[in-house]
Amino acid sequence: MNTSSSAVRVAVITGGSQGLGKALAREFLLAGITTIVDARDDVRLDAAVHELRPYGNLIAIPGDVADKRHAHELVNAAAALGRLDILVNNASTLGEVPLPTIDQLTEQTFQRLFQVNVFAPIHLIQHSLRIMRRTPGNPVIVNITSDAASQAYATWGGYGASKAALEHVSRVLAEELHGTAIRVLVADPGDMDTQMHRDAIPDADPAELRDPANSARALHQAIQHVTEPYQRIRVPGMVSA
């Protein structure tokens, strides 16, 4: 096929204005990857863009991943560049803080949790596959998860259920992508010093939390070295099952 898909790799990261998403965007940009990020809060996104832009070719689009039309916008930007090498479903919500017990979990919170943490990644994946199928090399879908998906922590029921759902979707997706070059990576970044962590556990000792920059570096390494159709990793490094 005599088409013009660019030699420059392209990544989409949802939730790129802070924490792991922002740190990962910087890693990608440093590696020469054109990086498309979004964030719900455009003031914070502007600040992140200001910080990240010197590192490379950054496309920042404000919007909520749960808004289908916005999700398509992100992938369409990649499609316009002719390829999508990495999709990172990083944007997540805790639903409400302080985290409620199952007993206290409202339908509204539960719905928002699944909209942002499950349905939005599914939409993005659905829309990305077409362009990923024609991207050279091994495109990677990265879904950010949490140990709350497998461990039973009090008050983490709603969030944990949404991440467990995302993990299961990821496993099935990998089965369905068998025979294609597309890889699925589920990554648990552990406890990082991020706003999300502060919201969830306000009294955690920052000294015991990982710097998202380190996690991002390790995650980028992992993304470069995914060889299996499906992998679940704990960042940094350790492969669990």
């Binding site: 689009i61 039309r69 916008e73 369409n76 930007a77």
Partner: peptide, 8 residues
């Protein structure tokens, strides 16, 4: 020049 999406 070219529409990518509604705003983009």
């Amino acid at each position: 020049a070219t529409a990518i999406d509604r705003r983009l």
